[in-house]
Design a protein around this nucleic acid. Structure first.
Length: 864
RNA sequence: GGGCGCGUAGCUCAGGUGGUUAGAGCGCUCGUUUGACAUGCGAGAGGUCGGAGGUUCGACUCCUCCCGCGCCCACCA
């Protein structure tokens, strides 16, 4: 017998096994090997290079690893493609912060030097996240690691831009966009976050040119500088007479609009249906350059656009005396000026939701500017059709509605970013500003010279593309697109993509659009969306609350398997997950339990063991084999249907409540005697249980596999075949289930009267005697164990009373159930219910009645 | 305003197409250091399934309304 440590040392085993797996290249996926096999491809959502590992990564990757290992064991050839995302704004921010420590800005070091710095930073820290992920024991093909800014990938991004442009789905336009003054870039609509905040609403008096004033309500008084009209509802009786009149904005002279025209402070009062008479005063100031609604009203009424806040968040020349002030400071000063002039009617508290940058939380400033956009409608249309045709399965289904809802209302996507870290937009401008889009300078130049008919110099667009514009190509760009590679032919389209629902719009839906446009195929068959992890109070994990656990600490305390097990068992389909560290303890304990089951089994194994298909003889053995079959069926179904929490729960019950609590215990007397078939059965059930557990707990199962002296072992359980049901003993299964119940009753009576062992009498399977803790002997009183077995427990007269009490309680309970059933059987039920239901009910009635009379007979005897 | 979801034991949650004596894990109580494991073993206590109606022979399960909670999108002058 090999000496096996008493406690599972997960740290040592995890280190040993992971390098063993990597050395043996068991995660490798190549085209040559894949040919002719059933292929299953998973695309890892690329973590940001800036990212530290957090619970979201743990959940993401555990789910994928479970699927990857399960699929491999069920005969698929699996490619799990890993990689990282350059995460444009996020990474740029990190490096800018580094620079700031040196007292420099990116402008001071210049574009080229700055990008060099970011690359240096990426080389140094960019793979930390990957190394962290490896600690989880996950099984992607690391040799295929890709990066959204590596050479091949960048080529794909440029190609995608050019093709969309040529298809008329990318355009450049002057629009109002979300601007982050801190990051200094435009953002897409969904990169803006909104949360309720309390602030103020100011009531300003705008003097009418003919005397008197009209009051407007605003949360952003500083934008009054850019007002070009006041709007009221045409139905509003209060203002009917004022429509067409003018107000004169105080403290401000003439301003200059986007077209360079002068705009005077006397602005018209106009009418527009969209004005809500019930809000504020019913009179709205219109600032087309700094508000999305006002922009629309401005377009409708052909109003000028006066920009007053600049890209740095400061008031510009149009702001007169406030020029150069930060927008928030300007607000205070302007309110003061209104107040001093008697033009501030009142200030009220007000709850609203200002947009904030999803990368730095700075308040977004809507600004008009020239940006690049993707026309989304045509792409969305195809994505909708594909879903309706069933080319895509979304799990859980409920998110299908969310998906559709978004696609049906999607707006054009602003993809240009005024930062430096990313894929530079392949648009080049001629001397007259004409745009030429090309895969490279030469291609653009060719187009340009054809047009101009002479040699020209082109200047490339300064902006880079939104990070999501590169990651939406992930499922095929990682496989070599736009080349028609063998990888693409073999591994694409992919089969399983999982993510949190929070990036359904950012990433998942966009990948579907890109996949359909560029490859004509939905890029993955199944989209699995898991909920988001929250703390135990249901709050989001956030930096400011500091309520998120440290993954390394958790790995240290519970081991990778414990962490994986715990997180997965907490993961209901789709709904958010309250994280509870206690559940990890369950995972760790479970691993330890497995370790100790194995220690026991190992004690009785001698020499090299052949795995054989056992020939069961005892009832418990047949029960065990049938029971295993049940779990194989249900667990396989759980995994096929992506029901991960059920998988984990069933596994736990198989191994702990059945294998450990009953099979191992029932086996003990036989394996101690060296009975061959007892060991065969135990080993057979055990190996198969380990296989079932391997996808979620790869380390402990392989560690155990290492310790078992088996002949013809594979490198890892992952290389073995997934279990199939091989035994059916329904009768013996029922028999032993009933015996278990009788054993429990016997034990509970012992416990009730406070004895460790009790005499028994009767004709019953020998497992009963051992498991119930029964012995031969005499007794004053014999009490029948309520069950289908003719077996009695021997007690003294003193012990009797407690048992009588217990039996009485049971009798009461039974009586009430019986009367319920009786009532049912004498009602309309017997005429209207389906036959099998009635039959069931009658069967139940018989059983209950028998049990009841059993108890009553006992009570009579005991009382007599 | 549009959409989605939730409310079952102290806690976290299971309970396809209506028929179970309503389950699990944790926690709790009692007992227990017997050579696999105290990260353990054995035995228990604990729920009028948010509320009110309705459909039905029968509702935790279906319908309506109400109460409470959460989320997404839009709006927030």
């Amino acid at each position: 017998m090999k000496e096996i440590e008493k406690t599972y040392d997960f740290k040592e085993w995890e280190r040993f096994l992971y390098s063993k797996w990597l050395d043996a290249k068991v995660f490798r996926a190549t085209v040559d090997e894949a040919r002719g096999k059933r292929v299953f491809t998973i695309m890892m959502p690329p973590p940001n290079v800036t990212g530290n590992i957090h619970m979201g990564h743990v959940l993401d990757n555990t789910i994928q690893d479970v699927v990857a290992r399960f699929k491999r064991m069920t005969g698929y050839y699996v490619l799990w493609q890993p990689g990282t995302d350059h995460a444009g704004i996020a990474t740029q921010n990190v490096v800018e912060r580094e620079l700031k420590k040196e007292g420099k800005t990116r402008w001071e070091v210049g574009r080229e030097e700055f990008i060099k710095r970011v690359w240096e930073w990426k080389e140094k820290y960019g793979n930390l996240i990957i190394e962290s992920l490896k600690k989880l024991g996950i099984s992607p093909d690391w040799d295929r690691l890709r990066f959204t800014l590596d050479d091949g990938y960048s080529k794909a991004v440029i190609e995608a831009f050019v093709r969309l442009y040529e298809a008329g789905l990318i355009y450049r336009g002057y629009r109002l966009i979300n601007w982050c003054p801190r990051c200094g870039t435009a953002l897409a609509d969904d990169e803006v976050e909104r949360e309720e905040e309390s602030g103020y609403i100011y009531y300003l008096r705008y003097p009418l040119t003919e005397g008197g004033y009209i009051v407007v309500a605003t949360t952003r008084p500083e934008t009054y500088l850019g007002d070009v009209a006041v709007a009221v509802n045409p139905q509003d009786e209060r203002y009917k007479g004022l429509i067409g009149k003018r107000v004169k904005l105080p403290f401000v002279g003439k301003r200059v609009d986007a077209e360079g025209k002068e705009v005077y402070p006397e602005i018209p009062i106009i009418s527009d249906e969209s004005v809500d008479m019930g809000f504020g005063t019913g009179a709205v100031k219109i600032t087309p350059a700094h508000d999305f609604n006002d922009w629309e009203i401005g377009e409708k009424h052909k109003l000028p656009k006066v920009q007053v806040i600049d890209f740095d968040g400061k008031i510009n020349e149009n702001g007169g005396e406030w020029k150069g002030l930060d927008r928030f400071e300007a607000r205070e000063r302007i309110v003061k000026a209104f107040a001093n002039a008697g033009l501030l009617e009142k200030v009220e508290k007000h709850t609203y939701s200002p947009g904030r940058c999803y990368r730095c939380s700075t308040v977004i400033e809507p600004l008009p500017s020239l940006q690049w956009f993707v026309k989304m409608k045509p792409l969305a249309q195809k994505a909708l059709e594909a879903y309706d045709k069933g080319e895509l399965i979304i799990v859980p289904e409920m998110f299908g509605k969310v998906y559709k809802n978004w696609l049906e209302n999607v707006k054009d996507w602003c993809i240009s970013r005024q930062i430096w870290w990313g894929h530079r937009i392949p648009a080049y401008y001629g001397p007259d500003g004409e745009v030429f889009v090309g895969r490279n300078y030469e291609e653009a130049l060719q187009k340009a010279e054809k047009r101009y008919g002479e040699k020209v110099e082109l200047k490339q667009d300064e902006d880079v593309l939104d990070t999501w514009f590169s990651s939406w190509l992930w499922p095929f760009a990682t496989l070599g697109w736009p080349e028609e590679t063998e990888d693409l032919k073999v591994f694409y389209p992919t089969h399983f993509l999982q993510s949190g629902w929070d990036i359904l719009f950012f990433w998942d839906a966009r990948m579907i659009m890109a996949g359909l446009f560029f490859t004509g195929k939905v890029p993955f068959k199944v989209l699995y969306l898991h909920g988001l992890l929250r703390d135990k109070y249901g709050r989001k994990f956030s930096k400011s609350l500091g309520n998120f656990p440290d993954v390394f600490e958790l790995l240290d305390k519970y081991g990778a398997d414990g962490l994986r097990f715990g997180v997965m068992s907490l993961t209901p389909e789709g709904r958010d997950i309250r994280f509870d560290e206690n559940q990890l303890l369950v995972g760790r304990n479970f691993a330890n339990k497995m370790w100790n089951i194995n220690r026991l089994i190992n004690m009785y194994l001698e020499g090299e063991v052949d795995l054989v298909k056992p020939n069961p003889t005892k009832p418990y053995q047949k029960w065990a084999l049938h029971m295993l079959g049940n779990y194989i069926d249900v667990i396989t179904k759980n995994l096929e249907n992506y029901e991960f929490d059920d998988y984990v729960k069933n596994l736990y019950h198989l191994i702990w409540s059945n294998v450990a609590d009953w099979l191992v215990e029932a086996s003990k007397p036989y394996i101690k005697e060296g009975k061959r078939e007892a060991l065969d059965v135990l080993l057979y059930v055990w190996i198969n249980s380990l296989k079932l557990a391997h996808p979620i707990m790869p380390f402990i199962t392989d560690a155990i596999y290492e310790t078992l002296p088996l002949k013809n072992k594979e490198i890892t359980l992952m290389k073995t075949e997934w279990p199939r049901r091989e035994y059916e003993y329904p009768d013996e299964y029922e028999y032993f289930e009933d015996l278990k119940e009788a054993i429990t009753v016997f034990r509970s009576i012992k416990d009730l009267v406070g004895i460790k062992s009790a005499p028994y009498r009767g004709d019953v399977d020998e497992s009963f005697v051992f498991l119930a803790g029964a012995e031969n002997g005499d007794a004053e009183i014999w009490v029948k164990i309520p069950s289908r077995f003719e077996v009695y427990i021997g007690l003294t007269r003193e012990q009797k009373n407690k048992v009588v009490q217990k039996l009485n309680r049971e009798r009461e309970e039974l009586l009430s159930v019986v009367s319920k059933v009786e009532k049912k059987l004498s009602s309309d039920f017997v005429h209207k219910a389906p036959k099998h239901v009635i039959e069931n009910e009658r069967e139940k009635y018989k059983t209950l009645k028998a049990k009841l009379s059993d108890i009553e007979r006992q009570l009579e005897m005991l009382n007599g």
